[in-house]
């Protein structure tokens, strides 16, 4: 995951303030923070509350509601495997079980060598090429465990 930075409060504040004047700007601000830092730490909550004139509870409520926002930085690569029905019909459960074993990683967790974070997805809209995955945002279709491992090995 390139172009991401270590969390610093001044930079986070600057990003947040860019969205503070937008109508409903909290979600875009959270996305911008995650795009920059790869996660949204709890430390962001008071900064967001201040900028959006909301209570910390309100900000926490929004932040914790959405599956996308991570509270810790992920591994070097993020693998989003689809677990929804179309992919199930094409053996996604088997592929996922094999990958969890071969990569040594559980759902919503990062491998011990920090190489890959495995995240479940409930539909990537790639149902016509099931089973499917996104590897660092790049779509992979008709996957098996070998194909995913090969794609992962080709990355730095």
């Amino acid at each position: 995951m390139d172009d991401t930075a270590r969390w610093t409060e001044p930079e986070a504040t600057e990003i947040i303030l860019r969205h503070a004047a937008q109508e409903g700007g909290l979600l875009p601000a959270l996305h911008a923070l995650q795009a920059r830092f790869d996660h949204v730490p709890r430390d962001a909550v008071p900064l967001l509350a201040e900028a959006f004139n909301l209570s910390r509870a309100d900000v926490h409520g929004t932040l914790s509601f959405y599956h996308d926002f991570r509270h810790q930085p992920p591994g070097r690569h993020v693998l989003r495997l689809c677990r929804a029905e179309s992919c199930q019909a094409m053996g996604a459960d088997r592929v996922a079980a094999a990958l969890r074993e071969r990569l040594g990683v559980d759902w919503a967790a990062t491998s011990a060598d920090d190489r890959v974070t495995l995240e479940p997805a409930f539909c990537l809209g790639l149902c016509a090429v099931s089973p499917a995955a996104l590897l660092d945002g790049r779509p992979l279709g008709r996957i098996d465990a070998d194909a995913v491992v090969t794609a992962l090995d080709a990355l730095p």
Binding site: Y66, F69, A121
Partner: peptide, 8 residues
Amino acid sequence: QRVGAGAY
């Protein structure tokens, strides 16, 4: 355009 955050 606004982007969702993984909530069905």
